[in-house]
């Protein structure tokens, strides 16, 4: 644990309060299928409870994806327009290995880890040489290259070209249709584990240097930090997490289509991060949930014109919650209690 005197008692209490609140949210989500079953009177593995679990599963997957994006945008302060490359690579690697090679899930997991790691190092080494909007453009170009590749008819045998891959043979024990409840816990556990790992990393010495680079890269370099190396670490870490989110996405949807590599997929990550709050871990995850549920509710209410309504909601959020839901909440709390100083730890 933290040694006495090194951390304010207040900060410790704040951390404990956060942990307690987080635990209650996780508990609620873990019990959700059964609560839904109680409310609706239907079994937890059928009917509306099953359908709602589906919505949440999708939200958990995007929560991980949005969190990975925020490692770059909110923590390191670099704006990537090519995050879909990692997500889509995870989706396609999983789909192709299951469909054509019939690998086991463990092997696929390691393969996705390795592929996205190498991808992160290679593309990071090239694109991080430029900054700001140039970085955004270079990453966009790389992601578009993968998108075009996924639609290329030359590789139809492997990728299905513009049709994508369908009917991926996912092992029976986690088939999302027949084993919905099991898949629900798999996705929830996945999101929870990634959150805990990311929290450890952003609160590590390296994680703090990454935040310092966001705040003032010149200063960080002048202090002796090789900022390129730290940005590369953040880029690779973020990419690997996005790739793993892509893997679960493929298992859940039982398909892979070029859309997962399109620029829209990157924009979604950006929206979730901004709505939830950049520079926090909980924020993008919440943003993913909000986007997912809002999309469902709005499309049911307004039909195909729902993006129009969503646009208005998004503008309102940006206007009135400029730091996102969690970011604004944190600031409001820091201001409301005059004695409560902002805590050192980031959540």
């Amino acid at each position: 644990m933290v040694e006495p005197g090194t951390l304010d008692v207040r900060a410790k209490q704040a951390t404990r309060r956060w942990n307690l609140q987080g635990l209650m949210v996780v508990l609620f989500l873990a019990l959700f299928p059964f609560l839904a079953s109680l409310v609706t009177g239907e079994p937890p593995d059928a009917g509306r409870p099953k359908f709602w679990q589906g919505l949440l599963i999708q939200a958990y997957i995007f929560a991980v994806y949005a969190l990975s994006y925020d490692i770059l945008m909110g923590y390191t302060g670099i704006l990537s327009f090519g995050h879909a490359m990692f997500f889509g690579t995870g989706v396609y690697a999983t789909a192709m290995l299951l469909k054509h090679a019939e690998w086991g899930l463990g092997q696929i997991f390691l393969a996705v880890l390795l592929i996205t790691f190498v991808q992160g190092v290679l593309f990071g080494l090239v694109s991080l040489r430029v900054k700001g909007v140039y970085f955004a453009m270079v990453t966009l170009a790389f992601a578009e290259a993968f998108y075009i590749l996924s639609e290329a008819t030359d590789f139809r045998r492997w990728t299905g070209a513009e049709d994508g891959l369908h009917g991926i043979p996912v092992p029976d024990f986690i088939n999302p249709t027949d084993q919905r409840l099991r898949f629900y816990y798999l996705a929830l556990g996945f999101a929870l584990i990634v959150y805990l790992i990311a929290r450890r990393v952003v609160n590590s010495p390296t994680g703090r240097v990454i935040v310092a680079i966001r705040e003032n890269e010149t200063r960080a370099a002048t202090l002796g930090y090789n900022t390129f190396a730290y940005k590369l670490i953040a880029f690779v870490f973020s990419g690997v997490l996005a790739g793993l989110a892509g893997m679960v996405h493929a298992l859940w949807n039982l398909n892979a289509s070029p859309a997962v590599l399109s620029v829209n997929t990157t924009i979604n990550a950006l929206l979730m991060t901004i709505i939830g709050g950049a520079g926090t871990l909980v924020g993008p995850m919440l943003g993913a949930g909000v986007l997912q549920l809002l999309g469902y509710v709005l499309s049911r209410t307004f039909g195909p014109r729902w993006p129009l309504v969503f646009g208005v909601v998004f503008i309102l959020i940006v206007l009135f919650l400029p730091y996102g839901i969690v970011g604004t909440w944190n600031r409001w709390r820091a201001h409301s209690s005059t004695k409560d100083k902002p805590s050192l730890s980031s959540k």
Binding site: V2, E3, T6, V201, N203, S204, P205, T206, Y225, L344
Partner: peptide
């Protein structure tokens, strides 16, 4: 910045008292 712990990804920074 001058210490040897900058590339530790798995330790809480508050433990380096």
């Amino acid at each position: 910045a001058r210490g040897p712990d900058n590339f530790k990804l798995w330790h809480d920074y508050r433990r380096f008292s």
